[in-house]
Design a protein around this nucleic acid. Structure first.
Ligand SMILES: [Mg+2]
Ligand SMILES: [Mg+2]
Lengths: 604, 604
DNA sequence: GGGTTGTTTATAAACATGCTG
DNA sequence: CACAGCATGTTTATAAACAAC
């Protein structure tokens, strides 16, 4: 029973776009937005104000996907191989419901929720940018830089944040005081935590020991509860993921772990932290970088809260990812927009939020319980014909639903790389046939071959025993037997569980789709974040609910804030995008609150 | 107890150098050896007769390591980035005990053990090359090409080798007949088996289903014994290792798995197969590609044999690997030489053989029991300064024992890349201080960033429990408790086991070091292949025994045959080299036969 | 001799998704 | 035609075996 939740440690999606890992913090401040380059269909491409080699692609709602591809292709050719290699797609407005013009992104250090941030003594937000693309709902997009830098003094031994240091650890632990050992397991993957740790260091590198310490200091679970094997896992992750590289100190002896700069999104705990630990807090419309610290820690300590934070099987990160591939060593970022109706600090906990993903690709429509409102669009890796050789055919539509999922498909050099998208992407149709996103670009690295990476319990196998008969599947799965399922006890019968889990509740802040061009096709990927029933009458949205046709979210405020999210995956060509939509009123959250009862019979 | 041996499935080291994966089989036959390029110290570099972009580096015994580096560097500069990117190091002779001249490598299709090969109806050795570098002992190096190609007819559905097909499966299974389900687990990793499968296909690609089938057909263990979870592992390996890529058939629907050509060493079961399944056979001095098939299968079916094949914890492949990094996208292969005194098909099973590895780097010298005779030299990744930027210092000796092992150390751009080697490498000293091999080149990919890759038993953790007290190590380790160690029951006491295992017996054909420049420094990496005590009075060589000073192998015939081995690791920059030395007479094998008694007290 | 740090392989699992009966 | 289940893929977690300090 000590077993941790089944593969629960998934990185929370990123809240803020990642920035360069350089130490060039000062000059990044207020670079003037360059002259936007305009392309057909109103698409504009302009320099990112702060990120080098990055361009912002503002796409009017009315723009055609092919136009986007064309613009990106043209831009790619304009700039050549040495040009920008990252493109952040922003949803602009074609005048329908937002300001017709796409204002240049982040241009000032508008401080949002400053008080929250200030509450942390040692955390100083490096920079916050508020941008508004589209209507008012598109606001409060900020990111902090090396906010954690104050934390660690230097690189050698001081890095290891003294235990007496309160640090900005969200929830889980207090001031290093004996801190109730009832710490629940944090919802971050090892890979994520390692990044948090390393990025918290001013030198962006850390020894293994210090990584251990940082994690123990910030997640009491590992200090107090976890078996020592967790360190083995840390080491395993360091070795396994090529994102982590080891370098020797100039004076030898010491070896430091760092993150490949090319792939370092500079994730920090502060960045990814969301007040989700407390459902009430989670409902806060403002997904700002609230540095909960001590203020919130009280709430988090409550068993209910902890339960909620630990129990949930967090949504698969890739649900929020948008792996995009631009042949010319370029990567394409889809930058979602987040609503910013930052009011109502607390709700009646009726509903938390929804998340959006890109390119549904035929998500199963289970027995819909409520009116679908949220949608997720899952964008599969795309290949923009910037430098592809000899495109054979130029199918208007994605070839065929040939592959299954995002995978490293060998470059199908014979097909013209096109931005694949479901029909709904362009015509707001249902995603029944939207499963046309394929050709994972991960292996299509431009020019030279890139490589990426990205790894038993003891005896008494739980795996399907050949002789067991019904154990025909080669994918081991835990039997839905009682013990580990206290909460699920009364719920569905054996085989039903698997299916039911697919309708897991959503627990993202808020969702709104009215202001993004991807609005209609957005489909939820059925994230599995389970909100504790005790958190009030919240109900989750089953996948079906979030399915297609949900464009008309009754009360949601169209808010789009760019969020670059990632799975912490060290895959170079895989770009993750997190679409967070906030601004929905409590009452409005009702549309997709169905399957909760499935999971928590007691709620019925 | 059903538990498989602890992480036993390690790929056997390769017996033959890998060749290009191209379908260009015909023209590969007898290319004339080009004019060798001569470098100081008698080092010669010439084109590989069959492998494109590959050169053979013949290194006289007297050559200095720095000379080798210099020659490689010079050659690299000569050829530029587009020149050969693979170098196979061959041990030449400086006239001491072998022919003074380094004859050009493989130049004819001398068939060795033709009868064995012919015995297999559907296996036709594509090519065999016998080379002799140095004295007579350097012989019989041959490799077969797509010998397995006859197996699968076409690409679609015929690939799946009919079950009635005898195929060239070594040992383990007969003609697909009910075959005794007592199949023991093969000693190949999943990654290896997948490569075997895919490379057995003429089209070099295979569907998942066919991979399953191929493996089941060739390793009855998976058909008859393994739990269904093995398929999960196959899929896991396919996804995890970037070496495996998925591509869609042109007609969609089908997705095939193939191997990145750049990293495909075209390993096939035949290539790696050694008659080791039967210790008696294993003693055969000729490590030829004996296609055991039905002839041998009888032997292998014997419980003793099976026991021996399955029980052993195979040596870590990397023990035989020589990850070498040449900055200019070049890879350096150390090609060992194998003795070819192919006589005595069967021995008294007194001793099997030894293996050699490159660059010892401080192998533990355990209480030596016998006179050390075999040595293993373990070469850590090296960086030849072909295109390194701004080498700061040019230490004659490897910088310092800064890092621990082969790892992806961030490019220490400030140090001149040099071939690192233990002192013993050059002066036959002991390896106590040899731990100077570092700077894993895996992350030093030339030019653009390459990426590579390379990830519970169920409940009831056996891992060190925090509360257990003595479980302080974060690396879980199985307690040396009785049950799983039937064969070891009487053996050492608890904690002693760990250490004892390090002295595991060696089970490679034969070893001889007299003809290789690496002779003296060769150190055994204590491969863990455990020969069943029942296999006769064999005794293994503990690591110490194989330690330094073993240059003077009493009776060993200096034999060096190039063997390129690899861990099946899809790491581009990591090259694996297997140094197999054969030619030792049975009587001569006595020098390193010590620790067997440690493991099998009954032998005492 | 034992602990630390790294590297790899094996397994189990959770999930996603397309297919197919 | 809906769908349940299976096949196929992707990732994360753990345990472990080893190697080298
Ligand atoms: Mg790594
Ligand atoms: Mg793969």
């Amino acid at each position: 029973m000590r077993r941790s939740p089944r593969r629960p440690l998934i990185l929370k999606r990123r809240k803020l776009p990642f920035h360069q890992s350089q130490e060039s913090e000062p000059q990044r401040n207020q670079s003037q937005p360059r002259e936007p380059r305009c392309f057909p269909d109103g698409i504009r491409i302009l320099d990112h104000p702060t990120m080098s080699h990055t361009q912002l692609v503002v796409i009017p709602k009315s723009a055609d996907l092919q136009s986007v591809i064309g613009a990106l292709t043209a831009r790619g050719k304009e700039c050549g191989v040495h040009g920008p290699n990252k493109f952040i797609l922003l949803s602009g407005n074609d005048g329908r419901e937002c300001s017709p013009d796409c204002p240049p992104p982040p241009s000032d250090g508008n401080h949002d929720s400053a008080e929250t941030i200030q509450s942390s003594p040692d955390v100083k937000p490096a920079k916050m940018i508020k941008r508004s693309i589209g209507d008012d709902s598109i606001t409060s997009m900020q990111w902090t830089d090396k906010m954690s830098q104050s934390e660690s003094s230097e690189n050698t031994k001081e890095n290891q944040e003294p235990k007496s240091h309160a640090s900005q650890a969200p929830g889980f632990h207090a001031n290093k005081a004996p801190a109730p050992p009832q710490a629940e397991r944090p919802p971050y993957s090892y890979m994520a935590m390692i990044q948090f740790a390393i990025n918290s260091s001013a030198s962006r590198r850390m020894t293994l020991k210090d990584i251990y310490m940082w994690i123990e200091d910030h997640f009491l679970y590992y200090r107090d509860v976890a078996k020592p094997g967790w360190k083995n896992s840390i080491r395993h992750n360091l070795s396994l993921h090529h994102m982590f590289i080891r370098e020797m100190a100039s004076d030898s002896k010491l070896s430091y772990w760092s993150i490949r700069p090319e792939v370092n999104r500079c994730l920090t705990l502060d960045q990814v932290y969301k007040a989700e630990c407390d459902p009430v807090t989670a409902l806060d419309p403002v997904p700002t970088l609230a540095f909960p610290h001590k203020q919130q820690q009280q709430r988090m300590k409550t068993p209910t809260v902890c339960e909620r934070r630990m129990k949930p099987l967090l949504p698969r990160t890739d649900a929020y990812l948008v792996p995009v591939q631009i042949p010319v060593a370029s990567q394409l970022y889809l930058q979602p927009v987040v609503s910013s109706s930052r009011l109502k600090p607390k709700r009646s906990a009726s509903r938390s939020a929804k998340r959006v993903r890109i390119a549904p690709k035929g998500s199963r429509v289970d027995p819909p319980v409520m009116a679908p409102s949220s949608q997720t669009l899952k964008v599969e890796p795309v290949c923009v014909p910037v430098s592809c050789e000899t495109p054979k055919a130029t199918p208007k539509r994605p070839p065929r639903s040939s592959s299954r999922r995002k995978q490293h498909l060998a470059r199908s050099l014979h097909e013209e790389p096109v931005l694949l998208c479901p029909d709904t992407f362009l015509d707001s149709g249902v995603s029944s046939d939207a499963s046309t996103f394929h050709h994972d670009a991960r292996d299509v690295e431009p020019g030279t071959h890139h490589r990426q990476d990205s790894p038993d319990r003891d005896f008494s196998f739980k795996t399907p025993i050949k002789s067991t008969g019904h154990l025909t599947s080669s994918t081991p799965s835990k039997p839905p037997c009682g013990a580990p399922f206290e909460h699920w006890g009364v719920t569905p019968v054996g085989k039903g569980i698997q299916t039911l889990l697919d309708f897991s509740p959503l627990c993202t802040p808020q969702l709104d789709f009215s202001s993004t061009p991807f609005k209609d096709p957005l489909l939820f990927n059925s994230p599995r974040e389970l909100l504790t029933p005790a958190e009030g009458g919240q109900r989750s949205c089953s996948r079906e609910l979030l399915q297609p046709g949900g464009a008309a979210t009754p009360t949601g405020r169209p808010v789009t804030e760019g969020l670059v999210l990632d799975t912490m995956n060290d895959s170079l060509s895989k770009i993750l995008v997190d679409l967070s939509f906030t601004g929905l009123e409590d009452e409005d959250l009702g549309m997709a609150n169905i399957s909760w009862s499935e999971f928590f019979p007691q709620l019925k």
